[in-house]
């Protein structure tokens, strides 16, 4: 995506161990290391640990492919500098996809100590969050979606992650959600920039290389290998994204069964 960045300076918004964010014009740009997924708002660099080098507020100077922060030169691999294309493929659901979506639910239950399928029901705040998320998953619409925007633990609230995963799945099946634009607009100022970035990118079909790999492996190769890696994102984000995604797929289950029986 570097092609699109013009010469100028902007400041670091937030720094974590393996990534760093900055606000460039009106969008959040994320810098990551060599294994970071490519995307319209992602910059792959040679830096593996950002937290030892940079701080919130440091100034980033950019001039075409040369990026400096304080005295540190950030190198961008030449293969990452390219024009970004919006993802346009959609997929038809089949029985294997539905079976695999069920397997993903079992996987989340098995792997994740904290998810809508397994949480501490004696903990008041967890009960609160997951009840609302379960309500959305049972009846996904604008009103239930509004109840989970910005909701939950984690830097990117898990409600946002569930919503992002769900919208992603619906789009992949060619079934755009009628309230998508409304909920993304609703989310402005109701969740943080980092969470909003993912939501907007999905709405605009601006998928990162990782998300594209998820779609290709899930729908074309009928494989769960890459999809399952999603669970490793953050502490709870991965499971939440995966939960939303499986729900988005399984909405097709009933209509698929009906079609098959005709």
């Amino acid at each position: 995506m570097l092609e699109q960045l013009k010469k100028g300076t902007f400041s670091i918004h937030s720094v974590f161990e393996h990534t760093m964010n900055a606000i460039y014009e009106d969008r959040l740009i994320t810098f990551g290391g060599a294994d970071f997924p490519e995307g319209i708002n992602n910059i792959v660099t040679n830096i593996s640990t950002f937290s030892t080098l940079f701080e919130q507020g440091n100034i980033i100077a950019i001039d075409r492919y040369i990026i400096t922060v304080n005295d540190t030169l950030i190198m961008v691999p030449s293969t990452s500098i390219k024009e970004y294309n919006v993802y346009t493929d959609t997929y038809d659901i089949n029985n294997t996809h539905i079976e695999n979506a069920h397997k993903l639910i079992e996987f989340i239950e098995h792997e994740e100590v904290l998810s809508v399928f397994r949480y501490d029901k004696t903990n008041t705040s967890q009960r609160y969050q997951f009840y609302k998320i379960a309500t959305f998953l049972n009846t996904p619409n604008l009103e239930t979606a509004k109840q989970i925007v910005g909701l939950g633990m984690g830097l990117t609230p898990i409600g946002d992650d569930v919503l992002t995963g769900y919208l992603f799945a619906r789009q992949a099946l060619g079934n755009s959600v009628s309230w998508m634009d409304d909920i993304v607009e609703y989310a402005q100022n109701r969740t943080n920039n980092i969470s909003l970035k993912s939501l907007i990118e999905v709405k605009n079909y601006q998928y990162t290389s990782f998300l594209i790999n998820v779609l290709e492996s899930f729908f074309e190769q009928n494989s769960l290998e890459i999809t399952k890696k999603w669970i490793n994102f953050g502490a709870t984000s991965g499971a939440a994204l995966l939960t939303g995604f499986t729900q988005g797929i399984l909405e097709e289950e009933q209509s698929y069964e009906t079609t098959q029986s005709i």
């Binding site: 609302k132 910005g150 909701l151 633990m153 969740t191």
Partner: peptide
């Protein structure tokens, strides 16, 4: 709770 200050989290 250690949470970001979104509207929903404040409600929670």
């Amino acid at each position: 709770v250690i949470l970001m200050g979104s509207e929903m989290n404040l409600e929670m």
